[in-house]
Amino acid sequence: MELIKNLTEIYGPSGREEKIRILIKSEITKFCKDIKVDVLGNLIAHIPSKNKKDTKKLMFCAHMDEIGLIVKHIDKQGFLRFASVGGIFTEKILHHRVLFENGVTGVIGVETKPETPKPPNLDNFYIDIGAKNQDEAKKMVQLGDIASFYQGTEIINKKVVAKALDDRIGCYCLIETMKRFKKNRFDLYFVFSTQEEVGLRGARTSAFRINPDYAIAVDVTGTGDTPESPQMAVSIGKGVAIKIKDSLFITNPFIKDKLITYARRFKIPYQLEILERGTTDAAVIQLIKEGVLSGVLSIPTRYIHSPNEMCDLNDVRATINLMVACTEQGF
């Protein structure tokens, strides 16, 4: 639990993944000797099989970055105007706290004139860092600085409530898999990717470098289990979601069958996922070089891209168990 708390609370919006990368690196150095950081900041851990016959490369991938707010104006009174880095939704941000890389924190406010549109647009919002004027604000924050949400992580009835479960919970699954597998049937790579939220960028360069035979992205997915939610046959607490398709990706049948077979054989609770809007790193990995057989394991999560996302620890455990099963059984 301590690890989930640390992973989710730390700062790391797209392009500013230094802190989260250092945290993950320190966590995995015990389990892996070959760790590299590439140009885009991806953290790539390589664990070859002890058996020389296992030469097929499997790449697990979870993204380290979270959505953010980038400063585009500092006004005369010291309020900050911002644009979004990744999918920021205006209905999810008002009066929440934010955190900058240098530790400065602030609160999101909104203009309240009668003519302010309802719902407000992003340019009606501002960040209040408590500065008394522009000069003071400029000493604390620069144009182009990026903030993440700032939120403590809690467990409520075996559900994790945190910012950035998308996709630090995926990072957690990768780390736990590295710790737990007993034998390894692959030439195995664990990639903690960057800049997913702004266009799946880190996954592209890391997959090019590795040139894997198989890839499995581990990320969060939406659910259809809250009051009046859109229809979706995924619920929290009902197991790991094996993706069938999303906006940009159709799971390779070979990979899908392997995942379902192992879930059944090892009695791991699973559900099948069709996501109508959204995608994951697997969408770019599948098209790298001559193509990569790819799949996605999703952790069902409520309130994605808000400061308080929620997932179920049982689903997290199921995801890790299925990843360990794949690693130990081979494809």
């Binding site: 590439d38 140009v39 885009l40 991806n42 960028r201 592209r204 360069t205 890391s206 090019f208 470098r209």
Partner: peptide, 9 residues
Amino acid sequence: IHITREGIP
């Protein structure tokens, strides 16, 4: 350019 091959600063 920056996402070409293994990534270009």
